[in-house]
């Protein structure tokens, strides 16, 4: 199974920034969602970020909330998500990070969740509503299961706290570009550049940027600021939403868009 370390080392050699699309597993249903994820992989995704839908996603804006509802209505749950991950991995060995809410893990059983999803091919589990202060509840069982740990840093995270977060992170730091929830934005937050620099000065773990990243130009700016990866969610999920009755059109739009982002990202200019 390909590790983050391998994936980011390869990218570094190629002077490329990772393209990391996000999808809600099961949006709009299991098969269509699987086809979309495969489309993204074919379009050049380097890492996948996948969400298991939750009824009360407080870190998400309206686009992903609606995707969660669609996926839940189609019967998606953690057990089926496991099956979904297995199918994705059967097609291609691409690192997968889960992004989800704590209650689902709690109800599944923390240790069993990490063990089952690691076996299915997941590299890390980022818990959106778990801060670094309670990280020990998950880091030990996650590492015991063989998972990497991923935590978030936001524009208002104090430097001392950033250091603590970096110290607990083994996969990559999920850098939230703005103060707010997920969702497409016209302009990229001007906090991004400084945030990446600060993190790069603090840690050697890869720094990937998400929230509000909506265009190839945004991706390029983030890559040029020195990030190791760009996470794009709501923009893609919005494409699914606007073609609910035409999965092929959604797939085509996703492929075209990711192709544009891919070209905007490569080749990366030399490290500063």
């Amino acid at each position: 199974m390909k590790s983050y370390q391998q994936a980011f080392a390869e990218l570094k050699k190629q002077k490329r920034t990772a393209l990391i699309p996000f999808f809600v597993i099961g949006d709009p249903d299991f098969d269509a969602s699987l086809a979309l994820v495969k489309t993204a992989v074919d379009a050049g995704a380097d890492v996948l970020e996948l969400g298991i839908p939750f009824s009360d996603p407080i870190a998400d804006g309206p686009t992903i909330q609606k995707a969660d509802i669609r996926a839940m209505r189609s019967g998606m749950n953690p057990a089926r998500a496991l099956e979904f991950v297995r199918k994705v991995k059967k097609d291609k060995d691409i690192p997968i990070g889960l992004l989800m809410y704590y209650n689902l893990i709690q109800q599944y059983g923390v240790e069993k969740f990490f063990k089952d999803f690691h076996e299915a091919g997941v590299n890390s589990v980022l818990v959106a509503d778990l801060s670094i202060d309670d990280a020990d509840e998950v880091t030990e069982p996650a590492q015991a299961a063989g998972l990497d740990t991923v935590f978030m840093v936001t524009p208002n995270t104090e430097p001392a706290r950033m250091k603590r977060i970096a110290a607990k992170t083994t996969g990559f730091i999920y850098t939230v570009s703005l103060l707010g929830v997920t969702g497409s934005r016209a302009a990229l937050s001007n906090a991004v550049d400084g945030l990446i620099r600060k993190l790069k000065g603090l840690t050697a773990v890869p720094v990937c940027v998400g929230f509000g990243v909506s265009t190839p130009e945004h991706a390029k700016t983030i890559a040029e600021a020195g990030a190791d990866g760009v996470i794009i969610g709501s923009r893609l999920v919005g494409m699914i939403e606007s073609h609910l009755n035409d999965p092929r059109a959604a797939s085509k739009e996703v492929a075209e868009f990711l192709g544009q982002v891919k070209s905007a990202l490569a080749p990366r200019r030399p490290n500063r």
């Binding site: 509503d129 801060s131 309670d134 978030m152 524009p155 995270t157």
Partner: peptide, 8 residues
């Protein structure tokens, strides 16, 4: 306090 990092 199980909240996203941004609220801490």
């Amino acid at each position: 306090y199980y909240v996203p990092e941004v609220l801490i």
